[in-house]
Every structure is written in C-alpha cells, then in structure tokens.
Computed example of a mutant assay.
Amino acid sequence: MSAHPSIGFIGFGAMAQRMGANLREAGYPVRAYAEHQQDGERHGTPMEPLATLLPQAEVVIVSLPNDAVLEQVLLGADGVLARLESGRLLINTSTNSPALSLRLEAAGRARGIAVVEAPVSGSTPEAEQAQLVVLAGGEPEAVERARPILETLSKTVHHVGPTGQGAAIKLAINGLMGAGLAALAEALAYATRAGLDAEVLFEVFGDLAVLSPHHQRKLAALREGDFAAQFPAALMHKDMGLLLAELNATYQGAPTLAAAAQQLALGAELHPDADYVITADILLEEAEDAATR
C-alpha cells in the first residue's frame, strides 16, 4: 500500500498529464477523469469515470479550462464538491477568476472539504520537469496539507495569501506574459518592415538580456515555425479577458494590458489551438508582405 494519498485528476490535458506523471514517479497512486476519455490510459495514467474515481481519491486535483467549466463540474447538486466525502482535499490548479475561487472554497467548507487554489506559472516544459511555480491561496492549514503534493510538481510553492489572491496573482503574471509577447511581436514587425533580414533579427533578438527566458523560448519557436501549444492562444485570450474584467471592476486603468489583449485576440480567433506566439507570426507575415510591396 502506498504511503502517499491517492490522487484523482479532473481534467487531464497537457499540463495535468505531466503533473500526473511526476506524482506517479514520486509514488502517488494517480487516476484521472476527462470528459472525452473515461477508460484506458492517457500519458500512463488510468482513466476512470467520476463514479469510480471520486470514492477512491483522497485528494482531487482539478485542471479545467475556464470558469464556466469549473462551475459546471464542481458546483451544483450533482457537482464534484457535493459528491466528495467530508475530510477530502481539493486542489484547483486552473486559472480562473478570484470570485470563483471564493465560491469554491465556500462550497467546500460547507461540505467539510478543504479547498486550495493553486494556479501554476509555467508551461508544458516546466510541468514535465517539475519546475512549475505554484501560487497557492487558502487557509494556512489547507495549504500545508497540500504542500507535499505541490512541491512534487514544482520548484517553488508560494502561499500568497487567502483564497482569491492566488487567482489574482496568476492573472497578473499572465498579463505580463501577454503584454511582453505583444511588444516583442510589434518590435519584430517594425524591424521587418524596415527591411532587416529575418535571420539577422532572430540572431540579434536572441542575444538580448531584455527578453525573459519565457519570451526567448517563444522567439525560438517563432524562428523555427513551431506553434505546438505550450500555452494555447485560446487560453491566453481567456486569461487576458479575466484580467481586464478584474481591472474594470476596480476602475484601474491599464491601457497597455488592454491593447495587448486586443492584439492577442487575433491569434485566438484564427488559431485557437496553436501556441499564443502565433500572434507574432501573424504580425510578421503582414510585415513581410508590406516590405515586399
């Protein structure tokens, strides 16, 4: 029998699959549920329907794409929180609104279930290497209960404050990522229109300290034409929308983030399942066309 609690994933996309593999390697019994696959295996993890997964899972880890899906799956009379036994732990790694995090915590508390929000910073390479940064929010006792699991998945676990603050800081971080990519795309497009050779541009920009490691990686993907989704454009669009809604609710002006969100929406509209760096490729193609006219 394993010394580790049994874990059930709800939502088992690219990030969750890699997290599940790391937990299995560390000795945790792991099962998963995904709406479109409820038997067999995915990335080495057994897939099960909720009816058999929930009774066995001492800890449930949730990785779902947006507020609407989270509400549908977790809340309500037949939702996961209503079907879990008292005393269980639910860790929500999704990126969602702070308001929904508070609702999930309240629903869990009413059932005697500890709920920890734990969105992560990092994409699939960091998930695979267990180098994510966890942004945990919740009651200290609940976060400490979740910490051994979270530390297995990450290089750092930050308890950033009470529930809602994990979601808030994740949106701020993703806003920084999105705005940085938008600025990089516009700078490359300008230089292309000015007639600079593409290889020269990539060589010079790849040598700059002003680009973060994350944006250096996006630059390399752009150079190689590799748009496999480490962070899908549709999810970036969703996160920027959540951030702008929070800013509007607090009457904070953020014109840079608003403009970046509008630019990133182009990639989400045309190529929602591609990595969000696809927006830079769209701008570069336009710039190359303009330079040759």
Results as ranks from 00 to 15, higher is better:
Ala3Asp: 14
Pro5Glu: 04
Ser6Lys: 11
Gly8Thr: 09
Ile10Val: 15
Gly11Ile: 01
Gly11Pro: 03
Phe12Ser: 09
Gly13Ser: 06
Gly13Asp: 03
Gly13Phe: 03
Gly13Met: 06
Met15Gly: 12
Ala16Glu: 01
Gln17Leu: 07
Arg18Ser: 14
Met19Ala: 10
Met19His: 11
Gly20Asp: 08
Gly20Met: 06
Gly20Leu: 09
Ala21Pro: 06
Asn22His: 11
Leu23Ser: 02
Leu23Lys: 00
Leu23Gln: 00
Arg24Val: 10
Glu25Ala: 15
Ala26Gly: 12
Val30His: 09
Ala32Ile: 02
Glu35Gln: 15
Glu35Gly: 13
His36Ser: 15
Gln37Phe: 07
Gln38Trp: 01
Gln38His: 02
Asp39Cys: 13
Arg42Leu: 11
His43Ile: 00
Gly44Ser: 12
Gly44Asn: 11
Thr45Gly: 05
Thr45Ser: 10
Met47Tyr: 07
Met47Ser: 06
Glu48Gly: 02
Pro49Val: 12
Pro49Tyr: 13
Leu53Glu: 05
Leu53Asp: 08
Pro55Thr: 04
Pro55Ser: 01
Gln56Arg: 15
Ala57His: 09
Val59Ser: 12
Val60Gly: 00
Val60Cys: 04
Val62Gly: 04
Val62Tyr: 08
Ser63Leu: 13
Ser63Asp: 14
Ser63Asn: 15
Pro65Trp: 12
Asn66His: 14
Asp67Glu: 02
Asp67Thr: 00
Ala68His: 15
Val69Leu: 12
Leu70Lys: 02
Leu70Gly: 04
Gln72Met: 03
Val73Asn: 05
Leu75Glu: 02
Gly76Lys: 11
Ala77Asp: 15
Leu81Ile: 13
Ala82Asp: 08
Ala82Asn: 06
Leu84Met: 15
Leu84Ser: 10
Ser86Tyr: 10
Arg88Ile: 03
Arg88Ala: 05
Leu90Trp: 02
Leu90Ile: 02
Ile91Pro: 01
Ile91Tyr: 02
Thr93Leu: 12
Ser94Trp: 01
Thr95His: 06
Thr95Ile: 12
Thr95Gly: 10
Asn96Trp: 09
Asn96Leu: 15
Ser97Gln: 14
Pro98Lys: 00
Pro98Arg: 00
Pro98Glu: 04
Ala99Leu: 13
Leu100Glu: 03
Leu100Arg: 06
Leu100Thr: 06
Leu100Cys: 07
Ser101Thr: 14
Ser101Phe: 09
Leu104Met: 11
Glu105Tyr: 08
Glu105Lys: 01
Glu105Gly: 03
Gly108Ile: 03
Arg109Val: 09
Ala110Glu: 14
Ala110Thr: 10
Arg111Leu: 02
Ile113Arg: 13
Ala114Lys: 07
Val116Leu: 07
Val116Gly: 08
Glu117Phe: 09
Glu117Lys: 01
Ala118Asp: 07
Pro119Ile: 13
Val120Trp: 02
Ser121Glu: 10
Gly122Lys: 02
Ser123Met: 12
Thr124Phe: 09
Thr124Lys: 05
Pro125Gln: 04
Pro125Val: 11
Glu128Asn: 14
Ala130Leu: 05
Ala130Met: 06
Leu132Phe: 04
Leu132Ala: 03
Val133Glu: 10
Val133Met: 08
Val133Ala: 11
Leu135Ser: 04
Ala136Gly: 05
Gly137Thr: 05
Gly138Leu: 10
Glu139Ile: 00
Glu139Tyr: 00
